[in-house]
Lab assay of single mutants.
Amino acid sequence: DETGKFLVLALYDYQEKSPREVTAKKGDILTLLNSTNKDWWKVEVNGRQGFVPAAYVKFL
């Protein structure tokens, strides 16, 4: 159920650099879980949760 969740689009490829991050490919649609940090947003992609740089994604 996606009610109340926001989707964001990956603008660039991002390769995770730590276990707390997730890899995303340009064009991926990610479920935004938390955007309270202006630099790192928590997302879910391909069943995995983790952080990506906020500058790499935008709201749909």
Rank of each mutant, 00 (worst) to 15 (best):
K58R: 13
W41L: 06
A10P: 01
N37V: 05
T23S: 15
T36I: 09
K5Y: 13
P53H: 06
W40F: 05
L60K: 04
L30V: 03
A10R: 04
V43Q: 00
T3S: 12
V8E: 00
Q15N: 13
F6L: 13
T23P: 03
Y12T: 05
Y56P: 00
S18C: 12
Y56V: 15
F6R: 15
Y56S: 11
G27W: 06
K25E: 05
L9Q: 09
V22F: 12
D28W: 11
K5M: 12
R48C: 09
N34F: 09
P53F: 15
A55V: 10
D13M: 08
F51A: 01
V43I: 05
E21V: 04
Y14T: 01
R20N: 13
G47P: 01
A10K: 03
A55T: 11
L60A: 05
Y56W: 08
Q15M: 13
G4K: 14
E21A: 05
W41Q: 01
T3V: 12
T31G: 04
V43C: 09
G50K: 02
K17F: 05
F59Q: 08
I29D: 01
N37Y: 07
W41D: 00
T36D: 14
L60F: 11
A24T: 15
D39T: 13
V52P: 02
P53Y: 10
T31N: 06
D39N: 12
A55H: 11
L7V: 08
N34R: 06
E21P: 04
V52F: 15
G47C: 08
L7Q: 10
A24K: 03
L30R: 01
G4E: 11
A55Y: 08
D1G: 14
K26H: 05
V52Y: 11
G50P: 00
Y14N: 01
V8A: 05
V43A: 00
W40M: 04
N37C: 10
R20G: 15
V57E: 00
N34K: 05
Q49F: 07
D13P: 06
V45A: 08
D13E: 06
P19R: 08
N46Q: 08
L9S: 02
Q49P: 04
L60V: 11
N37T: 05
A55P: 05
N34C: 13
V8Y: 06
D28I: 08
I29E: 01
G47W: 05
T31P: 03
Q15C: 14
L60D: 01
D39A: 10
I29N: 01
S18Q: 05
A54E: 02
N46T: 03
S18D: 10
S18P: 03
T31S: 06
G4P: 14
K42L: 15
K58E: 11
L7D: 01
Y12S: 06
V22Q: 04
L11Q: 03
I29K: 04
V52G: 02
R20K: 11
E16M: 12
L11N: 01
F6N: 09
L60Y: 11
A54N: 02
Y12Q: 11
E21K: 04
F51I: 04
G50S: 01
N37H: 10
Q15L: 13
K17T: 11
Y14P: 03
S35C: 15
L30P: 00
F6H: 11
E21N: 04
V22M: 06
S35D: 10
V52D: 01
A10H: 02
V22T: 04
V52W: 05
F59T: 08
D28H: 04
V57R: 00
Y56A: 13
V45G: 03
V8S: 00
K17N: 09
E44I: 06
Q15H: 13
A55I: 11
G50T: 02
V22I: 14
E2K: 14
K17I: 06
E16Q: 13
V52L: 13
L32W: 04
P53C: 13
W41M: 03
F59C: 15
G47N: 05
N46V: 04
T36W: 10
N37W: 07
V45I: 15
N37S: 09
G50L: 05
D39G: 09
W40L: 02
T31D: 02
K26V: 08
K25R: 12
L11R: 04
D39Q: 11
L30N: 00
L11F: 05
V43W: 02
N46D: 11
K58Q: 13
F6Q: 12
K38R: 11
T23E: 02
T36S: 13
T31M: 12
P53R: 07
F51N: 01
P19Y: 10
T36E: 13
T36H: 11
G27D: 04
N34T: 06
T36V: 10
A54C: 09
P19V: 09
F51H: 02
I29H: 03
P53L: 12
A24Y: 12
W41H: 01
P53S: 06
L33M: 05
R48F: 06
T31V: 15
L9A: 03
K42Y: 15
K17R: 13
V43L: 03
K38V: 09
V43K: 00
Q15T: 14
V43E: 00
S35A: 14
T3G: 13
K58C: 15
K17C: 12
F59N: 05
A24W: 11
G50A: 03
